[in-house]
């Protein structure tokens, strides 16, 4: 029994989500290998080789693998799939994009967003926006799985000493091509991995008002998040959205400001260790999950809180 973890990276840095997926692989048992698919990505393979618990790193390095096109990445995974009992992807945008393509080609079911490993064939995953937890068993010969990164504590990034093995890159499928990328610039910690998240909702009222959260986030070293209402209204960029259809976060501290707490938003943050809600409506559902709630006008409370920290 050997598990293959598909690395999440940008060709220069191994992303933290990979370390959470390796942790899930360790719970399954058996050897853990990591596959790095990219272009000029040797540095990523070297970082993966140092992760605790990794026995071997496979590196497929070629220009046609630079941009993570689903057709090429899936073909690369399939090229080595026969050696593995489990194939794990972090449940990131790229993992979710590629994993089902691999599963369908292998004619196996895929298990999405696991948050727990009961045994080598039985896993827990949330359904209905996290309102229920399903325990599912797979009888398929290969288990193709995406791992909810907040469900598993990351393994140490250092301490391992795996060998890196180069493997032959698959040819370009020719079916799709990469045109461009617009990366939102941010000096703040990455939302999905942040220790503290400060999120704003419709209650902020405008993109201008959203800036009221900046000093608070700076003070706390927090990532900024947003509810769907705030994103749809243009107060915050799309990739800040926390919820069923946005990012799933589980920080030590989640501060929800002017967020009512719809089911879809709670799906993305209710596993946070401590939740603080600031809302002027005492009946807002967010108070149902908040450890500490403060009823009040956020425009007074937020600056006051920033000052008091």
């Amino acid at each position: 029994m050997t598990t293959l973890v598909i690395a999440e990276h940008d060709n220069a840095q191994l992303k933290g989500a990979t370390l959470n997926a390796v942790a899930a692989a360790a719970k399954i048992g058996g050897d853990v290998h990591v596959l790095v698919v990219g272009a000029n990505a040797r540095a990523v393979a070297d970082q993966a080789a140092q992760a605790a618990g990794v026995a071997k790193v496979l590196l497929a390095d070629a220009p046609q693998l630079a941009d993570g096109l689903a057709e090429n990445v899936a073909a690369q995974v399939l090229a080595v799939a026969s050696n593995y009992s489990h194939i794990l992807f972090p449940a990131t945008a790229s993992g979710k994009n590629v994993a089902p393509r691999v599963a369908a080609k292998l004619d196996v079911a895929q298990i999405s967003d696991i948050i727990g490993v009961e045994s080598a064939d039985t896993f827990q995953r949330p359904i209905y926006a996290g309102n229920a937890i399903a325990t599912v068993q797979s009888a398929d010969s290969v288990k193709v799985i995406t791992v909810r990164t907040t469900g598993f504590d990351a393994v140490a990034a250092q301490g391992g000493s795996a060998a890196v093995e180069d493997i032959a890159a698959v040819a370009d499928s020719g079916l799709s091509s990469f045109v461009g990328r617009e990366v939102a610039k941010s000096d703040r910690p990455e939302l999905a991995g942040a220790r503290v998240v400060v999120s704003g909702g419709r209650g902020l009222g405008s993109a201008e008002n959203f800036k009221i959260l900046d000093p608070l986030a700076d003070k706390l070293g927090a990532a900024l998040g947003a509810s769907r209402a705030a994103v749809d209204a243009g107060y915050a960029p799309n990739d800040w959205q926390v919820g069923q259809t946005g990012k799933i976060v589980a920080p030590q501290l989640y501060v929800a400001v002017g967020i009512s707490g719809a089911i879809q938003h709670l799906a993305g943050m209710k596993d946070s260790k401590v939740i603080v809600a600031i809302n002027k409506d005492p009946e807002a559902p967010i108070f149902g999950v908040a450890d500490y709630g403060l009823v009040g006008d956020l425009f007074q409370v937020v600056p006051e809180l920033t000052g008091a920290l």
Binding site: I127, A132, A134, T135, Q137, A139, I275, P282, G293, V295
Partner: peptide, 18 residues
């Protein structure tokens, strides 16, 4: 292909305070 063994409630958060 996948067998659902059980479906359970997510762990409840303990009630917070205002």
């Amino acid at each position: 292909r996948l067998k659902t063994l059980k479906v359970s409630e997510p762990p409840a958060r303990k009630a917070g305070i205002k």
